[in-house]
Simulated scan of single mutants.
Amino acid sequence: MKKILVASTALVAAGMITAGSASASEKIKLSLGGYSKWWVVGAWQDDNYEAAFGKGAGSANTVDVKGDNEIWFDGSTKLDNGLEVGVHMELEAGGQTDTNTSASAATSSDIIDKSYVYISGGFGKVIVGTESNGTVLMHTMAPDAAGNTGADGILTGGLAIARPANVTAKVTTEIDTDAEADKITYVSPTFYGFTVGGSYVPNVSEDNQNVYGSGGSTNSAAAEIYGVAAMYANTFGGLGVKASAGYVTYDVDVATDRSQELAFGTQLSYAGFTLGGSYRNIKQNLGATPGSFAGSDGYAWDIGLQYETGPYAVSVTYFNSVAEGTVAAGEDEFTVYQMSGKYNMGAGVDLLATVGHAEYADEGSAAIDNNEGWSVMTGLSLQF
């Protein structure tokens, strides 16, 4: 399959060369963009977990401040042959929402979150660099008025209610196994609402955050990742329809079969209401005995309903994830249900709020393996 990919890339490159003169009138000039989002978070979690773990050693404070800030650098130019060539970089600009708070998680993160170049034209778009894979780019999830779900969500990301180290259930229905590892991604033009694409990742030994390898290292080289995705979006008499599907396969241990993941999602919208949900299935073959990094087999799913009118939006969302334990034998489960709201105060300025409950459950009986609690938060999001 690698030979096919290389051959296809060569054909695309040859087509670009022969499409006409590739000169541009001037060099690419960068423009700035991005966002700044800050939350004031109140959290009340299980007393037994706090007593076992202790304040300040992985458990959240009763009141905390969490932020997520990025500065984007974008630039592009159109060549004389009609091709567009561009660059995109994202600079992490402070805050802690990209850091897992569990005791065993690494606390460092890249200063540059994403960095890639692209070429687009009538054939579609080719992206080379550290961008999310094609299945993530096209994935449809349950709606949330505050955009407060997935890996960057305050509750779903483990930033309000502390995540016990032995709970390995996923936090999103996106197939984000390769994180922002270096890759090649192709996205086709849209035909009658349909868009297809795919990604190839040689390995994720540096940026991978979610695959366990032989011996249990979270930084092991999950190699030869292939992913394909499809998305459909259209409107029929006021009814909006969005749907997505993705498939990813990869190696983690040369002595085992290839691992694979599937994801599906859909949204229906009408008269301000949006109903949506998604599902992810994980089958990781790691070649070890159960309870000793045997794999992170499991699933994750969400469902949500949102209503938006004028500057206001409100939503209710439910997320559940179950995984075969990779640290200790038995199943791990992670559940979140929350209500969110948004008020648009002006161009690029949103006032946000979320209230919800998160629960982590491990089949181990120790208090340190289980935690749950409530959280109330309000935030301000600025886009520029």
Rank of each mutant, 00 (worst) to 15 (best):
E261K: 00
V252D: 01
I368K: 14
I127M: 15
D110T: 08
N166G: 05
T101H: 13
T140P: 00
K242Y: 04
A361D: 12
E308C: 00
A60W: 03
Y299I: 01
E308P: 00
G246N: 06
D253S: 02
A24L: 09
T335Y: 02
T266M: 13
A181Y: 00
N285W: 07
G298A: 04
H357G: 03
K125G: 02
G295V: 02
G54I: 07
S296N: 15
A43N: 10
L91D: 03
G94I: 11
A52C: 03
K342N: 07
K125M: 10
F73H: 10
K170R: 13
E308S: 14
T107M: 11
S199W: 01
V12Y: 10
D74F: 05
S217D: 10
S199A: 14
Y270C: 03
S102L: 02
V167Y: 00
A323K: 01
S321K: 01
S244I: 02
T218D: 11
V201K: 08
D152P: 11
F191Q: 11
G291F: 06
E372A: 15
R258K: 15
A271P: 02
D207F: 10
S120Y: 01
W39G: 01
N210G: 04
D46A: 12
T9R: 10
A14R: 14
T168Y: 01
T9Q: 14
G33R: 09
M16I: 09
T185Q: 04
S292W: 00
L262K: 06
V6K: 13
K55P: 05
L352P: 00
K125E: 09
F264T: 10
A255C: 05
E333S: 14
L91F: 09
D46E: 13
K125P: 03
L32A: 09
G364K: 07
S244L: 04
N281P: 01
Y116C: 03
E180W: 13
Y232Q: 05
A14N: 14
N370L: 04
G15R: 14
G158Y: 07
M141Q: 12
A366M: 03
P143N: 12
K283R: 13
G122R: 07
L155A: 06
S199D: 02
G56K: 07
D152K: 13
G379S: 11
V12W: 05
S381G: 11
I175C: 02
I225H: 08
V204I: 12
I111M: 15
S102P: 03
T335H: 06
T62Y: 14
V187D: 00
E84N: 15
G304D: 12
A294P: 03
N285I: 01
D144P: 05
G237T: 11
I127H: 03
G15V: 03
G295E: 05
A255G: 10
K37H: 14
L83G: 01
V211I: 15
I17T: 15
D110G: 09
G237L: 11
A367L: 06
A313D: 04
G295Q: 03
I225F: 13
I127G: 00
F123C: 03
M141T: 12
P189Q: 15
P311Q: 05
D74W: 01
A24D: 05
N203V: 02
Y226Q: 08
V241M: 02
S108G: 15
V65D: 12
N320M: 02
I28D: 11
S21D: 13
A328F: 07
V376P: 01
G265M: 02
D350A: 06
A263G: 14
Y49A: 06
D47T: 08
W38Y: 08
I127F: 09
D46T: 12
